[in-house]
Structure formats: C-alpha cells, structure tokens
Design a protein around this nucleic acid. Structure first.
Length: 946
RNA sequence: GCCCGGGUGGUGGAAUUGGUAGACACGCAAGACUUAAAAUCUUGUGAACAUAGUUCGUGCGGGUUCGAUUCCCGCCCCGGGUACCA
C-alpha cells in the first residue's frame, strides 16, 4: 500500500470517535495536566492557517503528556457572544444564533481534519444558556459583594449594610468610587433609591454615570482595552467620550493583587511588563489646595511633592467638576469657548497634536500651601479627567508639559531642582539637588520626597497615596448579542437581582444596534416589562464576560448546579499551560485573573492565578496586495487618480485598497495597465466603488464606461493580518487535502519558533512531505511490510536514543521546529543504514505519534496492536546507548585549531591533556615555548595556551 | 519619548547559553533514471583567493577572554507594547 493520506486520515478519524479515544475522565487518582488554547470566536470566514499554530503545539504537548500517564485536559470551545459574531451577523443579515451555530459546525469539522485530540463532550459555547447561566451568576456575586481593604478580600454587601445601620461610614475601609461620610441615623433615614445609589459606590459590579468610550458606528460603548489609538479595535471606527449611566466592574479593587501576583506566574517578561504598565502603579501624595475667596479645595495627586515650591499654577481637566464653580465672570466666555473647543476634538485629534498645548485661565487663584502665594488656576486638556484627581499642581521647572504650558501662557517658572551634576538627566528623572525650596534646600531628590511628604502630612493638607492607571472596567454594551444582565428595576428605580437563571436572551428578529445609546433589547417592551412592577435592564454584557471564566467550565462542562463541581476544581486546579496570542495581554488575561481572584475570595477557585504558565504564539500573517489610488471626492462621488500621476502627492492621501491576488494576476501585474474590462471587474467586485471615477494619465474614466483608456495600476504587497477583508486567507482544509494533516501539522511546527510571527509561505512544505514519505518507506515498500526482527547495531541504538532525548527536551522547551528537524536527521540516518528493524522503528513510531497522529496510528496497527497508539507508553531514552568509547576532540593552540585526537570518554582531565600534548602536530606548534595553560573542556575541545 | 523583544548564508531558521558558526529545510547548480518533462535519487552550495589549503565572516565600533553569535560599554536599524499617567 502506498502512503495515502486521505485514506489513512478518514479511517483513523472514525476509529478515534468510535472508541472515544480522547475522552477525558475525571479519574482523580491520576496526576493531572491542564493545557489550554485561547478559544476562538467562530467567525464566518472559518479557520485560517494561522489559527492552528498554537493548537498544534498544544496538541503535541497534550498527546505526549497522555502517553506519559497524565490525565490530560485539553479542551476546545467557542467564544460565541460579542461584537465580532454580531458584526458578522449584521453584515450577513443572518441571526447570530444561527450563524454562530453554523460557524461552530464548520470550525469543528476543520479542527477534526487536522487531527486534534479534543474531547468535544467538554466543549463550551459562551452563548449557550446553560453556560451563560453561570456568567450571569458570577455577575450577581460581583453585584452582591464589596471589597474590604482591611481583610483584603471581597465580602458580602449585607455585611456593609449592617455596618451602615449600626455606625454609618465610621471605621469602614473599602474600595469605592467616592469618599462618603454619613452616620447610622442618616443611613436609616435614606430612601430606597438613595440607599441603592450609595451601595453602588461599593459593589464590585456597580452602576455609575461616567465618561465612557462611545462608538457611534458600532452603536455601543467600549472598554479601554477595546480602543486603540482613539478608534475602535474592531472596525477602526471613531470613538468619543460621552457621559452615560453604565455598569462597571471594580477591577481597581484588585489592582495591588493583580500586580503582586504577577511574580508568581511563569509568563514572558514582556507580557508581565505590559500588565504592570496597564496597572500603572505610582506612589506619591494626595494634596489639597485652598482656593482664594472660596470654600472649595482642589485635590491633586503628585509623585513629586518635593517640587511643591516650584508649583506656580494649577491645571484642571476641562471636564472637572469645579471648573464652573471657580470660573470668574470675566473669564466665563473664554472658559466656555475652550471647553467647547476641547469637546469638539476627538480623542484621535487630541493625540495627534500632543505637542500643541492649549488651555484657558479660570480667573481663580489657589494658594500654594508652602509658599503661601496665590497661584492661577487654569484648565487644559493635557490634564485628563479620569487619571488621578483630574487636577494637577503644575511645576514648570521640572515637567516637560508644564514647562511648555507655562512658556506658552507666560506663567512663572521657579527652578527647584539642580540637575547640574547629571548632565544627561531629563526633567522626568528623579535626581538632583533641591534649590529655592526653604527647608528642602540642599536635599537629594529622593530624600526630599520623603521630607516633603512628612511635612504635608504634618500640616494636615494631604496624605501618602498610591495611584493606579488601571480603571474600572466598563461592563455595559448597547448590543443584542451578549448575556442579558440578570437585573431588574422596581418603581423606585432600585436595581434588584433576577435570581432565576439563566435569564434568557429573547430571540429577536431585529437585532441591529439602535441609535442614541439604547440597546436593541429596549425595543422589545414585552420582554422589558414582563414582570409587573419591574423593568428589566436592557444592556448586555461585553465580549470578555464569557471568556473570563471559561477555563473553569471545561473542568465540569455539563454541571447544572454549579459553574463546576468542587471536586473537579480541586482536582484540575488551574491551567498548567495556556497558549494564545499577545493581543489579549491586557484584556482577557487581566479580566480572567480578576474574576479568578474574586472567585478565590468566594472559596470557589483553588488557586489565586488561573494560568500558571503562558506561552504567546506568534501570528501567521498573510501577504496583502494593496492597490494604491489617490482618492478624492467630486460631487459626492469617489474619484480615483492612478498612482502613476498621483506620485507627487503625499503618500498618506492614497487610498490603499486591498485586492485579490487572482484579480491582480488576471487584470494586470504590478505596474501593468488595467483596461476597461479590468476596471469593470474591479467595480463589480467591490460594489462600494460603484460610480467611482478613475483618472489616469491619459484621460478620465467613469465607472468603466468610457473608451479603452488604460489606467496604470500599481500594487504593493505588505505583510499583515490574515483576514477575509484582505483576500489572503489560506484555509487549512486545502493544505490537509493536498499534503495530509500530518504534513500540515509538522510543517506549521517546522516554520520556526512558536512565539514568532511570520508570513505564511508554502515554499518549504515539500521538504516535510518528502520526510513523511521517507519515514513511511522505512516500514513499508509498496505492498510489503518490511520491518524485520534483526538485532539493532550500537550505531542504530545511538541514533534512536539521541533522537528520543532530543525530542523530549525540545517538547519540554516548546521548541517544535528543532524537534521536527531531529526527526528528519534520524530518518535520514536510518535510511542510509538501510535499517528496517522493529527494535528501532517501533519506539520511533511512538515518538512521532504526538506530531503525526495519523501516520503513526496506521503504522502502530500494522505492528499488530488493536488499541490507539495514543494510549501507548512514551519512549524514554537510555543513557547507556549514548555513551561512546572515545570522542574526537579538536586541539587548538592559542585558540587556533591545529589537530584533532580521539580521547577515551572516561579519561580524566590530566590524561586527556597528556594525550593532547603528545600529538606531533601539536608538539611542532608549541616547540620551545612555555605552556601557560591547558584548557580541557569535557565533550568539547582541548586548548593549549603558550 | 518610555518599556520589552530582535538583527546569523539567496530564504525560513539551528547552535547543548563562553567552546569546530550556519544543524534541518527551501532555493539554486551539476549528475543519474527517462524519448521528454514531472517525480525520485546522488553530489555540491557563507564569501574571497587558491581549486587537498588559506583568509575573512553572526547589524556597526570598541572591550574582557586562550577562545565571543553568546558577556560588558557606545552607536545604528527592525518589530511589538504604551503614551499628555501628573
């Protein structure tokens, strides 16, 4: 029989599913290993060759662990709720429930084609009511808890209510949005709605009115990590700040634990650094400034209290609450104009002209508590509303932005830090000697910070304070395709839990986002008012809700009574090895850690961290062909000027239109001419450009109608994301049907280190394909099974055991490219030895099984076994076969290689040196010179220094 | 700007973390088989001289060492993250 991949694959796929080969038992007596991939969202485009990169690696790892006797959990599921799935549904017009189910089917078929060992009975789908029942349950727990800073854990809100009843806010130390101060009597006198509002200040899932990232195009608000460069991460639409009442999660309560526990996990340094930056802890002082002729105080946060003598003015964020209170009548007009100006600027514009400082004077003055001088209060949008207190004390002598501001508006600058001893220091560096600062004069900056802090505390004008960049996570989405909040409001507007879970998402035909910040669910008034006297919450949860805890569900995926049973959580504990892309560095990975810690506080999870070890796989990229056209508007129609004549224009004015490779090869290679037919094809294929006018060097061309004018089209290729919209998706199914799943798997691994991103390129796949055929030929020649029972030679045993050792080490290091190479070396050597011996080939087929499950299963059964090779024992190398009688050593004199010699492998250092020095060639080189040193590096070399 | 990675043949990438740089594969070249092509197999393949050898060679410039792709100092370039963070 020839090596026929498709025949072998379909045979063993059936065998595995019939025999439940990959069923994961809850056999709690075995040692466990939990290995997980980040689950995909089932997009309509299906899997492309980039997705399986990480899945193949974990599959190899999981199969080997299983062969080694571990009970391995290596599940797969689908992140079906959320924006991507919904956007696809809107574009295609198909209901997301239907399209996601279809897509999931497609995904499963594609994944099975590659031969993964998933136990589909443990699969999860975040949009399934039996799953989101528990997402909602966790939300209700968050709603029902607050964070106690004394005990450093989440506690039930009823404890807090009991305290309020007894002592008001006295002696409480909690994590909250604003400081509150009321007595027990006051609390007891509050209305239900007032109580509701106050408790929202403490709950871990709470409602507040805040400035949020509103995306008009998507019709929803977004979390901070869903916004990149001022536009939505998904779709790239503009995002603006808007004040809205929204649900939030108090992740900031866990900031310190999220930061500290990074020390305990085995993640890459760069990833940990990203999380540290995102949390952004800074230590400094909270300070209050009095305002002249006013009761108001301005609170600021500073990391540099030592520079307070240089604080010559203050700046508030334009949105700051005090702005309207403080502004004097004379300045009112200017301030209002400035606020209008800064509101009109999008986030993006603000970022793009960072160097430009803008602001306006309020007319009010604060008092510097140390110099007692009046300092002007300004507003400016370089001060951010939602970092720190939204107000700063400006020290223009020691801060770049303050300096630029002071110079522009001609404000006083007092030098307070002498940096003359540090010529390379920038304003930001905390070094130098304090000057012009009364009692701080002459102190080193570090010392001065402490001294100033003490003085501030003593004066009663401030405190030590730790500030975080991390902000509470916005948790409301005005979209249809998400978990409905299990929340209802009574007549008073008090938010109450809906405890009958799952709280089902109604089946709506009209699921498109609505304008004006209302969720599509709000249109369904029957559903909203289903319970008389109550109104249901109509927002839905964001995409990260379901993905924040899915790793727990796999442990006990069908449990009806809990998110997972206590026993299974105690057994599987947490994910031993998690593999996924860096794009989730601060989103998913931060939220999961937060939820896991919260569930730990509740006694549900067993470990504080969900993912012990994490490997970031790189992205497989695609080549994108871009058509460069100058795009202009003329009477509302698009006009494209060919790149040839647009060359003199600025590059950023070009329309970069991704085009299909086939299209390019049919209608003109780079730099060739596009004729009328070509233009027509282009327009048909991208209806968006219908009616567009093309202007070429030789004339005008409207919608392909005008005469045979030729337009020079110039395409340029770029490496980028593999995506449907770039027409560069390569489907793994095609690879599998052409080369076989084993070949596809090994080739993806052979491409390079798993962490690295690289463009997809099939150029080398023949090498792997050839290797598999050679491998097959060791066992089978045409129809004959040619494995014999001969005794292996020492050389052959050495090849085998070296390979076992190498493969073993490589898998442990997650270095699969070198592992594949090692197989190639091994097979090449066995081939040249004409070795067809069972003693060598049977262990080898076990060794390769994790990499190439199909071919190995086929050969395994040919050896006469009836059970799957994936339940066989993993071969372990034997050191005795690797020992050699003598080893060839290069001998060098003064670092130059002069000779080589065979030295017995058990020779002592002295013996080795003596043998080396006795060689004639070496004698010639050291003749007459003194030997200073003989360096003998075991298993390496001998170097003689003269 | 700041914080992480990284820079090795024509290409993807190895190198036991200080010990013969370029494993393995692609590509290319020559040869065998074939009427021919494909496939397959064999050989060669860092560069320059020399054609058995020599010299140079891991982004650039220095340093430590008997010996540096690896360690140290100073630059250049590429990728990722982040950004008025007070």
């Amino acid at each position: 029989m020839d090596y026929n991949t498709s025949e072998i694959e379909s045979k063993w796929k059936k065998f595995w599913s019939k025999n439940n080969t990959y069923k994961v038992s809850n056999d709690f007596t075995k040692p466990k290993f939990y290995i997980l991939d980040m689950f995909p969202y089932p997009s309509g485009a299906g899997l492309h060759v980039g997705h399986p990169l990480g899945y193949i690696a974990t599959d190899i790892f999981a199969r080997r662990k299983r062969q080694m006797g571990f009970n391995v959990l290596h599940p797969m599921g689908f992140d079906a709720f959320g924006l991507p799935a919904e956007q696809y549904a809107i574009e295609s017009g198909i209901h997301p429930a239907i399209s996601t189910d279809e897509n999931i089917k497609k995904y499963i078929a594609q994944l099975d084609n590659i031969g993964f060992n998933y136990d589909w009975s443990r699969s999860v789908k975040t949009s399934d009511p039996s799953y989101y029942k528990w997402t909602q349950w966790i939300f209700l727990q968050l709603f029902d808890h607050y964070y106690d800073n004394n005990e450093n854990k989440a506690k039930k809100i009823e404890n807090l209510v009991a305290q309020f009843k007894k002592n008001g806010t006295e002696d409480i130390n909690t994590q909250n949005s604003q400081e509150e101060d009321f007595s027990a009597a006051e609390w007891n006198g509050y209305s239900p709605l007032e109580k509701n509002d106050i408790l929202m200040n403490y709950r871990l899932a709470y409602q507040k009115i805040g400035y949020v990232n509103w995306c008009e195009e998507l019709g929803t608000v977004l979390a901070n990590d869903e916004v990149k460069d001022g536009v939505s991460e998904r779709g790239g639409y503009p995002v603006e700040k808007r004040a809205m009442k929204q649900w939030s999660l108090r992740i900031t309560a866990y900031a310190e634990r999220l930061l500290n526990d990074l020390e305990t996990v085995d993640w890459s340094e760069s990833l940990k650094a990203m999380q540290r930056n995102w949390i952004g802890k800074s230590v400094g002082a909270q300070l209050f400034f009095n305002v002249t002729n006013s009761e108001q105080k301005i609170e600021v946060f500073t990391t540099r209290p030592d520079t307070i003598f240089g604080a010559t003015y203050m700046v508030l964020a334009p949105e700051h609450d005090l702005v309207s209170l403080l502004t004097t009548d004379e300045q009112k007009e200017k301030i209002e104009a400035y606020i209008a100006y800064s509101n009109s600027r999008s986030e993006r514009e603000r970022m793009s002209d960072i160097k430009e400082v803008t602001g306006a004077f309020t007319g009010a003055y604060a008092i510097n508590p140390f110099t007692n001088k009046n300092i002007p209060i300004w507003i400016g949008d370089y001060v951010l509303k939602d970092y720190g207190t939204g107000a700063i004390m400006a020290v223009p002598s020691d801060d770049d932005r303050d300096k630029a501001f002071a110079q522009k508006f001609d404000l006083q600058i007092i030098d307070v830090v002498d940096k003359s001893d540090y010529p390379n220091a920038t304003l930001k560096d905390k070094i130098g000697k304090i000057i012009n600062s009364d009692f701080l004069n002459g102190l080193d900056v570090k010392k001065a910070i402490k001294t100033a802090l003490n003085a501030i505390v003593e004066k009663g004008i401030g405190n030590r304070k730790i500030n975080y960049k991390l902000r509470d996570a916005n948790y409301s989405r005005q979209r249809y395709w998400g978990e409905p909040f299990p929340i209802k409001y009574n007549k008073d507007g008090v938010a109450l839990p809906i405890n009958e879970l799952p709280h089902q998402l109604p089946n709506l035909d009209d699921f498109k986002p609505a304008n004006g910040g209302k969720s599509p669910l709000a249109r369904n008034t029957d559903w909203v008012n289903k319970e008389t006297g109550y109104r249901r919450e109509t927002d839905t949860m964001p995409g990260f809700a379901g993905s924040s805890w899915y790793y727990l569900r796999y442990m006990d995926a069908t449990n009806q009574n809990a998110l997972a049973s206590k026993e299974s959580i105690n057994y599987w504990e947490s994910v031993d090895l998690y593999v996924g892309g860096t794009e989730h560095a601060v989103g998913h990975l931060m939220y999961s850690r937060f939820w896991n810690k919260f569930l730990f506080d509740l006694g549900i999870t067993k470990t504080v961290e969900p993912f012990k070890k994490l490997i970031n796989q790189g992205m497989i990229q695609g080549v994108i062909e871009f058509l460069y056209l100058q795009k202009e508007k003329e009477n509302g129609k698009s006009v494209f000027v060919s790149a040839e004549i647009a060359k003199n224009n600025r590059a950023k004015d070009y329309a970069k239109i991704p085009v299909h490779i086939d299209y390019i090869s049919n209608y003109g290679q780079s730099d060739s001419n596009l004729n009328a037919e070509g233009i027509q094809q282009f327009l048909n294929w991208r209806p968006v450009y219908k009616g567009a006018k093309f202007v070429s060097k030789d004339g005008v061309f409207i919608d392909g109608q005008e005469e045979n004018e030729k337009i020079k089209i110039v395409t340029k290729s770029e490496v980028g994301k593999m995506s449907k919209r770039y027409f560069n998706v390569v489907n793994p199914d095609d690879m599998v049907s052409k080369y076989g799943a084993d070949c596809f798997r090994m080739y993806e691994m052979f491409l390079g280190p798993i962490e690295q991103s690289k463009p997809w390129d099939t150029n080398g796949i023949d090498g792997v394909s050839k290797f598999l055929r050679k491998f097959w030929a060791l066992y089978q020649k045409e129809d004959a099974w040619i494995v014999n029972e001969d005794q292996p030679t020492a050389d052959e045993l050495k090849i085998l055991h070296l390979t076992i050792k190498k493969i073993n080490d490589d898998i442990e290091k997650f270095s699969f490219n070198t592992a594949v190479s090692a197989f190639m070396v091994c097979v090449n050597e066995l081939r040249s030895n004409k070795c067809h011996k069972r003693a060598i080939l049977e262990p080898l087929v076990k060794l390769i099984a994790p990499f190439a499950p199909f071919i190995s299963e086929e050969l395994w059964h040919k050896f006469g076994y009836s059970t799957s090779i994936h339940h066989s024992e993993y071969p372990i190398h034997n050191e005795t076969y690797l020992k050699e009688d003598s080893i060839e050593y290069p001998i060098s004199v003064n670092g130059k290689k002069r000779a080589s010699v065979m030295i017995p492998s058990d020779a002592t250092k002295e013996e080795a040196e003596a043998i080396a020095l006795s060689i004639d060639d070496v004698q010639k080189w050291i003749d007459g010179k003194d030997i200073r040193k003989v360096i003998f590096v075991p298993k390496r070399m001998v170097n003689i220094v003269v």
